[in-house]
Design a protein around this nucleic acid. Structure first.
Lengths: 185, 185
DNA sequence: CTGTAATTTCAGTAATTACTGAAATTACAG
DNA sequence: CTGTAATTTCAGTAATTACTGAAATTACAG
């Protein structure tokens, strides 16, 4: 039974395809993943091929890519030799994986490059200035990274509490500020 | 006087070029911006052309792109008809602009697409499930967006306080949790 | 207003990335 | 172990994106 792509689902799949191509991910991979997230049952390569109108080999490559991002779960159905893939049921898990993988691929190499460059002695005034800015970049990126890592530690339940809290994070930070300086004295 | 590209600065410029191409931004634009951030004085198109070994027209296009991201400041030097560009002196300003622009280009269209799709009535069980997931996506993305918007409101000074606070954000959130539930009763 | 330096546009081309179909490999039912 | 279904690899090609150089436009000093 071929999977149905209703106009609504198709629109969503196409949108994430477009968006995917604005990120590092290509259109097809974006489409495959959207399809998978929106579909309750695991999908096999042939179903994807058919639903998206792409070649079998392209589907295979897309699935490999998604595996390298650790965004899909591979599973087998007894009596069927096909491989079935599904996205995690918890969207927050997906988001956490995305954040982590992007950090590994984009942030970590940058931090390590910056650290390396900061080790060399500046020869000129120009280099001195450049190194200052590299130091600032490094510190800022590292701080933001720490921040997201903290947030990633939260589980779905805690997260939805914060969701309900809404946009009062500013107040919370202010509160913390007072508390923190108070506890210091 | 042609601007000097020492090995250290060059290495950094090339690195951000590579990284840029993993994001939506292309290599040249990444290189131009790295060069600009590391350089204290404003740069004109010819200096960029020479320093990066690219064509004059490519430099022009790159600068246009950076202007559309609102990442550069255009200024004129009296008695010189060239246009000079510089990056903001405060890195946090740069980061905030990047975050905001990416939100506009990547997040906002997705949220609005999801909202549209959530308006239609699900015809089948399949669509019902798909819509549930779209709703989850929408809520999660919106929450994370709110969060970053709050953080963006902080100025450099407050930010560096948090930087010193280090990786204790988890504790702060716990603290908030207690306080918040306490103030409710 | 004029002349020219600076910038931008754009058609053509280079470089890169995505995709296909055929062939090779893998892996499982029997 | 065998046969075959499923998957992957990969060379060739299509599609996209980046870049250049020439021509057009802009904008300013005088």
């Amino acid at each position: 039974m071929p999977i149905t792509l209703t106009p609504m689902i198709q629109a969503c799949v196409l949108h994430f395809g477009e968006m995917g191509s604005r990120w590092g991910i290509n259109r097809t991979v974006g489409q495959i993943y959207a399809l998978m997230v929106l579909h309750e049952q695991p999908l096999c390569a042939d179903e994807i091929t058919e639903a998206l109108g792409i070649s079998r080999s392209n589907a295979s490559m897309g699935l490999k890519e998604l595996q390298s991002w650790e965004l899909v779960r591979l599973q087998h159905i007894p009596g069927d030799r096909k491989e079935y893939y599904s996205a995690p049921g918890d969207l927050w898990d997906i988001a956490k994986t995305l954040i982590e993988q992007r950090r590994k691929r984009e942030i970590d190499p940058t931090l390590s490059t910056l650290r390396d460059l900061l080790l060399s002695e500046p020869a000129t005034e120009e280099e001195k200035y450049a190194q200052q800015r590299m130091q600032e970049m490094h510190d800022l990126i590292e701080m933001l990274t720490q921040w997201t890592m903290e947030i990633q530690r939260l589980d779905s339940a805690k997260l939805s509490k914060l969701l309900k809290l809404g946009n009062n994070i500013g107040k919370v930070l202010d509160m913390k500020d007072k508390l923190f300086s108070a506890s210091k004295h």
